[in-house]
Design a binder for these strands. Structure first.
Lengths: 132, 132, 132, 132
DNA sequence: GTGGTCTAGACCACC
DNA sequence: GTGGTCTAGACCACA
């Protein structure tokens, strides 16, 4: 399971978005989707840090914030687990709520670029088919 | 002309995105879409600053960076205008390139949320119809 | 490495040329000459600022503009380094292109001062031998 | 004579150097070289302004500063003349002094670009032969 | 430790 | 009127 998680985690150091935030957002989404289940172990700080050539403190900060907000639990000597307390997989509506800001941002940019509705629909459909 | 530009410029001080960056992104998109044409004047630093209740230097910083990257030109003692060196309104392909990162981000998030293709298509279509 | 860079950086506060521009020009030339290589770190904003007794924002402005134009890259939480995207050390031809405006300005002034060719050649040769 | 002066005057609006300063420097050099003699008329403010598509006030400012420093005299109804009072054509040594800053700037830039002595000599000689 | 953002205010240069 | 430069200082974000 750990290895598979690693595959999903995807850090883009030069994207402008802070590394710790990239990790937090991705873990949250993986929990919301049921990809990560309560009790699942997360890869160790060291493991992630060396894998992405990142300062371990950065990973640790992400985990700590996820712990503080109840998504993860720290088990002494065993690492971080997905918390039982919080709901686990969310219904589709909740997940779509999480996705909403990204949709709005896309629409805003398309509007300012004066891209017509039909054009945008076709492009998005193509991306969904190929990449999703 | 100034007044029309002003209507489009839209600053959200508490959005987390730096003010100067909001301005840069919007001006770039207004140029790409042909809304701002080569030779058009931009509203003065002081004008924008007082309108949005921000420090003139913040606006000046945005304009300077747009000048450094070739989007704007300085008219000494007059003001800033859209550079004619860089092509002005861009063809639809170029604009879509600009939009691409936002699309990719959306797809990545949808994937991690395990939202199915059909579901996503329907949601996006709705947004495009209503908001674009 | 830092120390060596520091030796080269040379600010003349009262030269009329803005401090941030002096820094930009010098960094550009140090990159073009291969003195600064892709991946090299630059001295920190605070370091340069205290060394030359200027406001950190002034240095920061120079670095930001060099980043906007692709010469430098930010390492978040670390510092600035020379970008590897842009070729690094340039061939002699490219460097001479950079030098060209200064040569043209010299020729224009000499022409307007009606300084004869032979005279100018001798003077320049002397300067090259002694100062270059 | 006026027309010939016009040929020498050369304004580069986007060079970074203020227009009024470009004019001042050029007039000074033309006087130093004996190209403009005491009593010579300068082209009218309006003439120069329309020729270079520049604000007449900018030209006027240049002339006023040249008057204040004794290079020109204002004759009511006749325009500006080169002043009799100041020495007119200067000896070669003086002229070379005027040229010195441009030479030093060139050497500084060549040094930072790591251009070798021989290379620089050849380039400069070429420019002198062709352009001076 | 690093750089970034913004402010308030002074002063300059140009047109 | 326009933009530019710089300062001093506060506060934030990141590693």
């Amino acid at each position: 399971m750990v290895d598979e998680n690693m595959i999903m985690l995807n850090i883009a150091p030069s994207s402008g978005i802070p590394i710790y935030k990239q990790i937090i957002d991705q873990v949250k989404r993986m929990i919301a989707s049921g990809y990560l289940l309560p009790g699942d172990e997360l890869p160790s700080v060291r493991n992630v840090a060396s894998r992405f050539q990142v300062n371990p403190m950065t990973i640790s900060k992400a985990y700590s914030l996820l712990e503080a907000t109840g998504y993860l639990e720290r088990q002494r000597g065993k690492g971080m687990l997905v918390s039982d307390k919080q709901g686990g997989e969310k219904e589709m509506d909740k997940r779509i709520n999480i996705l909403e800001p990204a949709i709005k941002e896309l629409i805003t940019q398309a509007k300012q670029l004066a891209i017509p509705k039909d054009k945008l629909k076709i492009i998005i459909e193509k991306y969904i088919e190929e990449k999703l």
